[in-house]
Design a binder for these strands. Structure first.
Lengths: 218, 218
DNA sequence: TAGATTGTTAATCGATTAACAATC
DNA sequence: TAGATTGTTAATCGATTAACAATC
C-alpha cells in the first residue's frame, strides 16, 4: 500500500504517533551535534527500534530518504516537525495553579515550541490576582466567559480530581478540541475531543509492578 | 493456557500493565461510592474497554470473580493493589529541585500510596540547605555517597536534559533498580533497569499531531 | 431451577519484522 | 560500477475479541 492510500483509511496508529516525537527529539540531538545524515539502522540502534519499524512509520507520511544514502537530518527534522504540527502556535489555558500547575506555567520549553499558556484559572481566592509566569491568575468562574471570547486549542487540567470532570465539561462545551489532563481521573468526553492523560500515579504503579514482577512468576 | 502457565513465559505484556492502574483507580472510585459488586461488562463500559479484555487481563494473575455474580469490588481492589506492589513502601530520591521537582516533592498522594521521597538533590547552591516538603536539599555531589548508605528503590530525575544521563549513571552504578525520568532525554540503561518516562513535550506533540491530523488525509 | 457472568479457547485483527526489488 | 539503503510487500507475531462451556 502506498503512503497515499494508507492515509485514506482511519487514523494513524497510536504506536506511530507515540514514536514520532521520539524521532524528533533524537534528530534534534543529532542536528545539534552537527550530524548531517543518518540511516534507519542507525536511528533504530540509538532508540531501540528496528530499522524496518522506523521506515514503516515514516512511510505513512511520505518518502523522506534516499536509497544508498539514508536521511538528511535537517530535512527529516523539518518533515517530522510539520507532521507533528510544529509550524504554528497553540493557544492554551491552564486550570489549577497549584504546585504542578505553576511548574507547567513556568516551563519555558512549551512556549519555545509554540505552545502558549494564555490564561490561568484557579478557585483559590488567595492565588487569584497574582501574576504567575505569563499571566494573572483569574477566578475559575470566569473560565467559561474567557473561552467564549478567546479561541483556545488546548485546555490543561491541573486541578484536584473531584473537580476535573466539571472543568472538562466547560472546556468541551466551549469547543476546546484538546484536553491535557494531569488529574487522576478518567475523563468522559465526546469522541471527537482529543485527550492526553499524564497520570503520574499510574506511571509510578507501573514501576512498582515491574519491580515486584518476579513474585508473580513460578 | 491457565494463568499459572501464562506466568511462566516472559513478562506481562505492557498493555496489561498499563491497564491495571486504570482498573485500580476506577475500582477505588466505586468503593468510595459504596458500590460492592461489579461485572466485567460494567467495568468495560465505564472505561471504554471490552469486557473480554478486562477478564483476559485479570486472568494473568488468577481468578478473582464468580460466575453469575461478577467481582466483589473490595476484594478485586485488594488483589490488584497487591499485584501492583502497593503492600509495601518504596524509598525514592529526587534529583532536581526546580519547579517540577518541587511540585513532585509536594504531592501528597505519592506518600499516601507508600512512595516516599527520602532525599532531594540539586546543583544550585542557592537551593541547597533549604527545606522542601520532606527533606533538606543536598548538593548533588553527595548523591553517590547517599545511595551507598541508603538503599533506594526509585530515582526521580527532574533535571535539565544535559545532565540527566550523568545522574542516571550514578543511580544505576549504585543499583537503584527503577528510574522515573522527567527530563526530555532517551536514557541509556542496562536491560535490567526499569525506566518510566514522563515526556511532557512528547505528550503535547501527540495532541498537536491529532489536532492537525486531517491535514495529512486525502 | 433459570439467569448471569466468569475464565478460557479459538478466531480475528492489527502491528512488527524480514526480505528484497528498486535505485541512489 | 559496486555498495548501501530505501520504501514496500509478504510473513510473522502478538494482542484483542467473540463465543461458550462451566458454574455460581
Amino acid at each position: 500500500m502506498s503512503s497515499r492510500e494508507r492515509r485514506k483509511d482511519g487514523g494513524i496508529p497510536s504506536g506511530v504517533v507515540t514514536r514520532l516525537p521520539i524521532y524528533l527529539r533524537y534528530l534534534t540531538e543529532l542536528r545539534d551535534q552537527g550530524v548531517g545524515r543518518v540511516s534507519s539502522a542507525q536511528l533504530g540502534e540509538a532508540l531501540s527500534f528496528t530499522a524496518a519499524q522506523i521506515r514503516s512509520d515514516l512511510s505513512y507520511f511520505g518518502s523522506f530518504g534516499q536509497q544508498g544514502y539514508g536521511y538528511d537530518v535537517d530535512e527529516l527534522l523539518m518533515h517530522i516537525s510539520r507532521i507533528l504540527g510544529l509550524n504554528r502556535t497553540y493557544a492554551m489555558v491552564l486550570v489549577g495553579a497549584g504546585n504542578l500547575g505553576k511548574a507547567l506555567a513556568s516551563y519555558e520549553n512549551f512556549r519555545k515550541r509554540g505552545f502558549e499558556i494564555r490564561a490561568i484559572f484557579d478557585v483559590d481566592e488567595i492565588l487569584v490576582g497574582n501574576y504567575h509566569a505569563c499571566c494573572v491568575i483569574q477566578p475559575v468562574e470566569e473560565l467559561d466567559q474567557y473561552l467564549k471570547e478567546n479561541p483556545t486549542d488546548i485546555g490543561i487540567i491541573a486541578t484536584p480530581g473531584h473537580v476535573s470532570q466539571d472543568i472538562c465539561d466547560v472546556l468541551v462545551a466551549n469547543n476546546v478540541p484538546c484536553i491535557w489532563n494531569f488529574s487522576p481521573v478518567h475523563l468522559q468526553v465526546p469522541d471527537e475531543v482529543i485527550v492526553e492523560h499524564i497520570h503520574l500515579t499510574d506511571s509510578l504503579l507501573r514501576l512498582s509492578f515491574r519491580l515486584n514482577e518476579q513474585r508473580h512468576r513460578d
